[in-house]
Amino acid sequence: MIETVDLTKIFKIKRKEIKALDSVSINVEKGKIGALVGHNGAGKTTLLKILSTLVLPTSGDAFINGYSVTGEEKKVRENIGLVTVSERAFYYRLTALDNLIFFSSLQGLSLGDARKRANQLLDFVGLSEWKNVPYMKFSTGMQKKLALARALITDPPVLLMDEPTLGLDLVSAREFRATIRKLKKKNKTILLSSHYLREIEELADIIFLIKRGKIVASGTLDELKRMTGKVLEVITHEINNEIRKFVIYSTDKEYILRIPETEIDKVTVHYKEVEEKDPTLDDIYIHFVGEVEEDIGRGRSRPWRLRE
């Protein structure tokens, strides 16, 4: 189980305080997959770092299978596997097999057991064919699979994944999602962050929408659909900042928008209603989280409509 209680994190940069997380409380039950969804800088990675004991919270607490990240760090680390890829995640000149043997040895396995475990994991993630290939020659997809294999060395009950399919081609991403589903069948509890809404629809049992460090909505996909309500698809020949985030298609002469009925009063320009539809996760995201980039200080102007 994964739980956070009023988790807050404030970073001090020079003389400025930045609240990366603001009283975040979430719960992912045993054997379920939770997903964090939000724009870049919303706090997703900070939350995962706190859960993995890499960063301490400013206030509040978090628990992995009942163990506190602020007082029982060693127990927390024994219960988690962290899936992330950075330039220094593995030794570039070592093969996939040798990398896993090395990291297995650090977990206290004998050389024989480490080799056996490494081969088992390479087979599980589909890398057996490339086990003797140096890591430096691995594609991004292969690197992600090896990162997952390393996270599974001790067979932890909880897995934390920071954008596990980011940068993968469609086939590699599909294979990785299939592996995540296999892990769920093994009763693993998983919390992942992702920008790919179709991926979230496919995998998540519970979704947490995070905006500027706060959880603005959470629930199953069906629950979030009910919270959003029906969506109106409309056509207009004008546009303004209030409704720009609802645009799904545009030409030189017209814009097509999908707007929740509860927000239709924001349309102050003339429009023609086309059809009433059930909300998609795209609509839910835009309703609760969607912002225009310039609104969050990124200096550009486009809607946060995220698609795979």
Rank of each mutant, 00 (worst) to 15 (best):
M142D: 06
F124A: 04
D61G: 04
T251E: 12
I215L: 07
L197S: 00
A35V: 04
L232A: 10
L36F: 09
L48P: 03
L109K: 14
G66K: 12
D22Q: 10
E291C: 11
K188I: 01
S250Y: 14
I215M: 05
L191Q: 03
F288V: 06
V231A: 02
L100R: 07
L197R: 00
V125A: 04
V76I: 02
I80V: 08
D222L: 15
K186D: 10
E73A: 09
I256E: 14
R117N: 02
L160A: 02
N79H: 12
A118G: 07
A62Q: 03
A114P: 04
E276K: 15
V216R: 07
E129M: 12
K145T: 05
A178D: 15
A42M: 08
S172P: 09
R115C: 12
S250K: 15
K211R: 13
I259W: 03
L56T: 08
L183W: 05
V28Q: 03
I33L: 11
V69K: 03
F90A: 00
I296F: 11
K16D: 11
I2P: 00
T45K: 06
L48Q: 05
Y67K: 14
F288I: 06
R15H: 15
V171P: 13
K145I: 04
G31Y: 10
R77N: 09
P164H: 05
L221M: 10
V289A: 03
K272H: 13
V171N: 15
V289K: 03
R212G: 10
L224Y: 05
E87H: 14
L146K: 07
E87G: 08
G43F: 01
G290Y: 00
S110F: 09
L170C: 13
K116G: 05
V5F: 14
P303L: 06
T251I: 11
Q143S: 13
S59M: 10
V133N: 13
G43Y: 01
K144Y: 07
A114M: 09
E78I: 03
S105W: 15
L121C: 02
I190W: 01
E73S: 12
L281Y: 01
T165D: 08
Q143G: 11
D6A: 14
K14A: 13
A62L: 08
I256T: 14
L183E: 05
D295S: 11
N27G: 14
T280P: 08
E238K: 15
E201T: 05
D282S: 12
H195D: 07
H237I: 11
